[in-house]
Design a binder for these strands. Sequence first.
DNA 1: TATCCATGTGAGCATTCTTTCAGATTTGGA
DNA 2: TCCAAATCTGAAAGAATGCTCACATGGATA
Lengths: 123, 123
Amino acid sequence: MDTTRLDGDVCTVHEIDPEAVKYAKEHALPARNIERLSRLFSALSDPTRLRILHALTISKELCVCDLAIVVDLSVSAVSHQLRLLRDRDLVRARRDGRMVHYSLADEHVRHLMDTGVVHANEG
Amino acid sequence: MDTTRLDGDVCTVHEIDPEAVKYAKEHALPARNIERLSRLFSALSDPTRLRILHALTISKELCVCDLAIVVDLSVSAVSHQLRLLRDRDLVRARRDGRMVHYSLADEHVRHLMDTGVVHANEG
DNA sequence: TATCCATGTGAGCATTCTTTCAGATTTGGA
DNA sequence: TCCAAATCTGAAAGAATGCTCACATGGATA
C-alpha cells in the first residue's frame, strides 16, 4: 500500500508534521468501519427519511400508507425509502394481513436522532 | 394546509389508523429542525469527510496538506470537503502563517461519531 | 376464482454530490 | 519586488440520489 500520491496536487515535498500524519494513519478506522458509518449517516441524511424515523419514534408502529400521509409523499416514495431503511437495519417490518407495520429497529436510532437534534440546535 | 394528496398514489380511501396519523403529524419536528438534522448527518455521510473527522479526533490539529496525505486524496478535494465541514460548523480553522490548521469544532462531533460507531458495529 | 387493496419494484428523469483540473489568492522569504 | 508554497475556488465530468410513473406481488374477501 503506497502512502504517497503520484500526481502533482499533493504537498510538493513531504508532510508538514510527519509525526501527526503517521499517528493519524496508524489509528485510522478500517475501511469497513468507515463504510458502515457512512451508510448509517447516509440513511439519516435525507429529510424524508428523518421525518419517517421521527414519526416512528413517537408512534410505535405505522403502516406504509399512514406514513405516506404523515410525511405527505406518495406511497411509492415512502416504500422506496423504507426499503433503504430496512436494508440499513434502521427500521423493522411486521406483516399483518396485507398490511406492513414499520417500527424502529432499536433504541440506537432514537439515540442518534436525539444526539443530532441536540447538536443541530446549538449553532 | 391540506392533509390529503390529490393524485392517485396514496391510500385510496383514508388513513388506516387516524389516531396514530394525527398524533404523528402533531408531534412532527418543525421543517427547520429537520433541515438542520439533515444537513448535519449529510456532512457525516461521506467516507472522505468521516476519515478527515476521525483523523481530527485523534490528532488534535492537522493542516490541509497533512490531511490530504492521511486520507490519500488531492489537496483540492480535501479543501473542498473542509469548506463544507467548516460551513456546517463541524471543524474550525486556525491560520498560522501560510498554513491553516484544522480541528474539530466541538465535542459533539466526537460524540456523534462514537455513537455511530457503536451502532454500526453491532449489526 | 376473481377482484380489490396495501405494498413492493424497475425504469427514467432531474437534481445533487464528489472529485479532478486549471488557475486564483495569500503569505513568507530572497 | 518577485517567486515559491499552502490553500482556496469555479467549472465540468461521472456517479449517486429521490421522486414519479407504471406495473408486479401478495393477501383478504366476495
